[in-house]
């Protein structure tokens, strides 16, 4: 068999058979012209691989953030969205399938380099567990192990939609362990506007005050002025305003 450039490219791309491999390796040792040719190819190939990603301009990211902000629907009344959340009992199964799929894909693609952006797989089946304490435990585990920014979105969702005060309470505490972002800030403030349970209201106030979030002042004032709000919550809001 004649070894030409086409064959060398096949060899470079790892598409040659074991027999061809042996033959090419031998030929490469003997034929210096061929060797030079191959070295050039290999050099180009590895340089190509190490080419860094292109850097888009900053305005691209701003544009996306701005657009997403404008898109994010104001959550409908919590009651109805909670029902949806609970209904998604299929969720657990879904998550399991995704995990399996991820596993499968990972194994299939082992031979080729896995792109760096393939994220760490953290199971989140717990999010839709019918058991309150399992959801709480899920929050503890998810936030203690790693600070995956995706978890922040899960926590904010739980804070908006979970039917259990105890879960919402745990979400508030867990969110405070993340570096403060606008998402977290806005999430906490929006939750305070919607929240009706005193125990969670107080936790939210104390979180916002702890984060020295001056943007929360109007919400605290609104609570103080709201007749439906329990006195103890108003006291907490008053205290918070003094500290801010």
């Amino acid at each position: 068999m004649k070894v030409d450039q086409e064959m060398l490219i096949k060899y470079l791309l790892g598409e040659t058979t074991t027999m061809e491999n042996a033959m090419i390796t031998n030929l490469l040792e003997e034929d210096l012209t061929l060797q030079k040719e191959y070295q050039e190819l290999a050099k180009i190939w590895s340089e190509l691989e190490s080419l860094p990603d292109e850097l888009p301009s900053q305005k691209m990211e701003h544009r996306f953030t701005h657009w997403l902000d404008s898109m994010s629907e104001v959550p409908a009344s919590r009651k109805s969205s909670r029902v949806m959340w609970l209904r998604s009992g299929r969720w657990a199964a879904a998550a399991a399938v995704v995990l399996l799929a991820g596993f499968f894909v990972f194994h299939q693609s082992k031979s080729t380099p896995v792109s760096e952006s393939r994220s760490t797989v953290t199971g989140i089946e717990w999010v839709s567990s019918p058991s309150t304490t399992e959801r709480i435990q899920g929050i503890y585990h998810a936030t203690m192990k790693e600070h995956d920014p995706a978890i922040v979105q899960i926590l904010l969702k739980l804070l908006r939609e979970d039917e259990s005060d105890n879960v919402r309470l745990t979400a508030v505490e867990a969110l405070q362990t993340f570096p403060l972002t606008d998402d977290i800030k806005i999430g906490l403030i929006q939750a305070l506007e919607k929240e009706e349970k005193p125990v969670v209201q107080i936790a939210l106030i104390s979180a916002l005050v702890g984060l020295s979030d001056h943007d929360a002042k109007p919400q605290l004032e609104a609570l103080i002025g709201n007749e439906d709000v329990e006195k103890t919550v108003k006291d907490e809001a008053q205290l918070g305003l003094l500290r801010l």
Partner: peptide, 20 residues
Amino acid sequence: MSDEEAMMEVQSGNTRMLSV
């Protein structure tokens, strides 16, 4: 959390997850 899980979140209405 995997990309696929995040996308399922977007689908179920947690559109903020798209930023991830």
